[in-house]
Design a binder for these strands. Structure first.
Length: 866
RNA sequence: GCCCCUGUGGCGGAAUUGGUAGACGCGGCAGACUCAAAAUCUGUUGCCUUCACGGGCGUGCUGGUUCGAGUCCGGCCAGGGGCACCA
């Protein structure tokens, strides 16, 4: 008798249709079961799904299917992050509309996702470029404006003079525009911002409540927010400037080192620097030079600490010294006070500056255990702990003590003058600039009127729709040079006015989509009840590359939506999982051209592995394993894999072996291995069901080790799914299959054993269903079961089978394993000690002496110390 | 420069969270079936030593805590990631 091979091409579409017809994945908001919201970061519709999507959505799908089996009303939606620059570029290159290109891609990718057999609620699907979606986003913008969380200000931006557009920092490569190649200028432009800094402290402290987030992501966000405690200190100038400036305010976190100060430095953008430059051509030149300096990483790293002496001086607050005032290229206007005092002995940057300009270096912190006479700062500043020296009333204090003492004194004003300083907490986090001079994004719904200023578009006039007929061939903002679009009547005074032509950063779109999924057709941005019921997302899954931007913006936006009454919670994602990338080795021809894996034949082992280009027979070099990318041509098309092996094989492979948060190396052998397992399970099930009659009529399941294995596997796999340790769950499933095969080989027609195998088979199929859902349905049917596995409740593991009646305990002598002890599971500590002492090898080791100690760890191990 | 993570067989990795290191898979080796191949099945597979029973070593290196360390602590080495003039 031969069993046909499992044919995924025929089987998978059939079950996908069955699920669709039964509408089992469409979720109702008023379902009485407890809720569970699983979400994977929605894709950008670039054209085709890639293998990273397959991994991401498979993980989410296993969680969704598992939680559904556990009795939850599961929300598992899908949508499209559909605005963005690639659509504009494609439109330009291919002479199509950005909209058409985007929706065509969405259709393609939806079809591809549907071949994966995902348990998605497609009835809630939307794209962020749907007018319905961005109309609601415009309402949110108006609410944020109202709440003073959105505002306009002038800001320095990267400006590409050829494309005539603002570029994000990520789009500036070595000081040049990534597309045009033109040298990027710093330009002062009026931009829209979201006031994320209002929540700096809250966004930081609330990280502690996110206990189901990776520690790494929380740490990255904490560093990004960058809280530091210090103080503002005012230094009086020895004489007022011509324009009447009398003092300089600085920010410092090291007020303890005040007695080590040897200079003051202003940012080139500091108002006082500008004031002085009016009468000082050399200074004006220096400032211009600073502004011109590159903003690329390399430029900053190699930039020397340089300054320009203004000739001014300030008085030290605690002694009668004066300090020279410089304008220095390394001081940022955006942070603190835009001015610092320099303490060269204890700060690398200040040290470099002092060496260059020959300023004094006075140590004021003495490391513990070092003699003051032996301590000198020679080639490196000291930034560690210690006690204060050379610091008058601070001498002998710790750094912390000195910080408090200085703050105390500076904050306490003389009766007839203002305090000289004030404690202040600063954050690295900046407000979020959302203006983009782009076409394919959500229009910012305001109008500029000469008489009335910035006027919000009235809610009744929303949405502000994007026009279809834009010219993308000209440089600059297509909305700005559209002939009619921007010309409107002022909503306030009805006189001719101009629409805002900037659109919103696409990160705004993805900052609230998870809330929209809870009521995707609502006429308001959310239905607060639905949002509050579903949110926070119980399990969010996506790439680590969004650790800061998307995840921080979403946390801010949730707070903003709470303030404006759209939902009532702070944290959008209760559980976060960051999955690793899919990587593949690279192949390169002698002429340097990359060759795709599909065009290569690899043979041999280890160092003898060779790759040959199939078409030419030419040997190609096997390069390092890298993230799949178009430029390296080391991508694998999921469509080919699914067409060749089936979705279940692709899904199984993605979850096998590699822990889900680590990178997985895509190999042909690995995929083939997963496919072999799919075939093996099918063969096992088919042969069993075909031969089942021979095993006799069903009887009570016998007491067979397979029963224990099956129930333990059931418990372990459920646990693996719940904790997203899919690779371990898969290994346990393999073990169960091995155990069933072995039991089957020995069963030999025994009806009691056959009944145990029957039970184990059903458990196997049910625990595999979340991973390989099509195979599971097919097996379920082959085993003569009714209905769909997809709608089955997760089977309950029999607790009594999870523990053994008899244990085999490892026995150590002096911490080294020397043998085993077989004993009843409920044996007492004394029983175990007695039994262990009687063992041959223990007797030999004791050699007549009494053991010094016997350590018995219940149900685990025994250690005899002699 | 600062901060963080990781290091286990030929490879991906597991280890009940301080308790039998190497589960499971890939690869290898040996065998069965076959005219042959594919597919499938069985056995074996950390290193050294021994005819064998057995013994020794072994989780990057090094020291420590402990009856017991892959797991905890100190120092070092290597690889990866984040931030980057943030005062």
């Amino acid at each position: 008798m031969s069993t046909e091979r499992y044919n995924p091409q025929a089987v998978e579409p059939r079950w996908q249709a069955a699920w669709r017809e039964a509408r089992i994945f469409e979720t109702e908001n008023d379902d009485p079961r407890p809720r569970y919201y699983v979400l994977e970061m929605f894709p950008y519709p670039s054209g085709r799904i890639h293998i990273g999507h397959v991994r991401n959505y498979t993980m989410g799908d296993v969680v969704a299917r598992y939680m559904r089996a556990r009795g939850f009303n599961v929300l598992h939606p899908m949508g499209w992050d559909a605005f963005g620059l690639p659509a504009e570029n494609a439109a330009m290159t291919n002479k199509v509309q950005a909209r058409d290109w985007t929706y065509k891609n969405i259709a393609t990718m939806r079809g591809q996702l549907q071949t994966m057999g995902l348990s998605l609620d497609w009835s809630r699907e939307f794209a962020t470029c749907d007018v319905d979606y961005y109309a609601q986003q415009q309402r949110l913008f108006l609410d944020l404006l109202d709440a003073d969380l959105a505002y306009r200000r002038s800001s320095r931006v990267n400006w590409d003079p050829v494309d005539q557009t603002v570029l994000a920092n990520e789009q500036v490569i070595d000081g040049r525009g990534w597309r045009s190649g033109a040298e990027v200028e710093q330009r002062e432009l009026t931009q829209w911002f979201f006031r994320i800094t209002r929540y700096s402290e809250d966004l930081l402290t609330a990280l502690e409540t996110l206990d189901r987030w990776p520690a790494k992501v929380r740490l990255m966000q904490a560093n990004w927010i960058g809280r530091s405690e210090g103080m503002r200190v005012r230094f009086p100038l020895t004489k007022p400037t011509a324009a009447g400036t009398r003092e300089i305010e600085v920010y410092t976190t090291r007020q303890d080192t005040l007695f080590g100060a040897s200079f003051m430095a202003l940012s080139p953008d500091h108002p006082l620097a500008a004031e002085l430059a009016e009468g000082d051509a050399a200074l004006a030149g220096f400032i211009a030079e600073c502004r011109h300096a590159g903003t690329s990483e390399a430029a900053i790293e190699s930039a020397e600490k340089r300054g320009h002496d203004t000739g001014l001086a300030v008085r030290h607050p605690f002694d009668d010294r004066t300090l020279p005032v410089y304008v220095a290229n390394f001081v940022l206007m955006e942070y603190g006070a835009g001015a610092i005092f320099g303490c060269p002995a204890h700060d690398q940057r200040d040290f470099d500056f002092a060496r260059r300009y020959d300023l004094p270096v006075t140590p004021v912190v003495l490391p513990d255990g070092v003699d003051a006479a032996d301590f000198a700062i020679t080639d490196k500043p000291y930034d560690g702990e210690g006690r204060m020296i050379n610091s008058a009333f601070l001498d002998g204090m710790t750094i912390t003590g000195a910080k408090d003492a200085v703050a105390e004194r500076l904050e306490t004003a003389d009766p007839d003058s203002a305090p000289q300083g004030k404690r202040e907490t600063n954050y690295r986090l900046r407000d979020w600039g959302i203006s983009r001079q782009r076409y394919w994004g959500c229009p910012i719904p305001v109008v500029h009127c000469e008489a009335c200023g910035v006027v919000p578009v009235p809610a009744a006039d929303l949405p502000v729709e994007l026009p279809d007929d834009v010219e993308l061939d000209r440089p600059g903002n297509p909305l700005d040079h559209h002939p009619t679009w921007k010309h409107v009547a002022c909503p306030k005074c009805d006189r001719p006015a101009i629409r805002e032509t900037d659109t919103m950063d696409t990160f705004v779109d993805s900052s609230w989509y998870f809330a929209r999924f809870t009521a995707p057709r609502s006429a308001t941005p959310t239905e607060p009840q639905a949002a509050n019921d579903w949110l926070p997302v119980d399990q969010y899954i996506g790439g680590i590359e969004h650790a800061i931007l998307h995840l921080l913006y979403s946390r801010f936006f949730t707070r903003a939506m709470r303030l404006t009454g759209h939902l009532d919670l702070d944290e959008p994602f209760a559980g976060l999982f960051t999955q690793g990338m899919v990587v593949h080795e690279t192949y390169r021809r002698a002429d340097g051209a990359w060759v795709s894996p599909a065009e290569v034949q690899v043979t041999g082992e280890g160092t003898n592995r060779k790759a040959v280009e199939t078409a030419t027979g030419e040997q190609v070099e096997i390069g390092p394993i890298e993230k799949m990318s178009k430029s390296r041509r080391n991508t694998v098309d999921p469509t080919d894999i699914i067409a060749g092996y089936g979705a279940d094989t692709a899904r199984l492979f993605m979850l096998s072996d590699s822990p889900p948060d680590r990178d997985v190396i895509w190999t042909e052998e690995g995929v083939a291995g997963a496919h072999r397992f799919v075939q093996r399970v099918w063969r096992l099930v088919r042969e069993w069901s075909d031969g089942r009659e021979a095993a006799g009529p069903p009887v009570e399941a016998g007491d067979h080790p397979l029963r224990r294995t099956a129930h333990r596997t059931l418990a372990a796999v459920g646990d693996g799914f719940a904790t997203l340790r899919f690779n371990v769950a898969v290994a346990k499933i393999y073990e169960l299959v091995n155990a069933i095969s072995a039991a089957q080989a020995e069963a030999d027609g025994d009806p009691a054993t056959a009944a145990v195998i029957d039970e184990a088979m059903l458990i196997l199929v049910e625990i595999m269903a979340p991973i390989t859902p099509h195979l599971a349905e097919e097996c379920w049917q082959a085993l003569g079961q009714e209905g769909l596995v997809a709608t089955r409740d997760w089977p309950a593991a029999d607790e009594s089978l999870l523990a053994d009646a008899t244990l085999v305990l490892p026995v150590q002598v002096n911490g080294k394993k020397r043998g085993e002890l077989t004993i009843d599971a409920d044996a007492s500590q004394v029983d175990v000690e007695t039994a262990v002492t009687a063992l041959d090898f223990v007797q030999r080791a004791l050699d007549g002496r009494r053991p010094k100690k016997i350590v018995v760890v219940p149900k685990r191990i025994v250690n005899v110390v002699v």
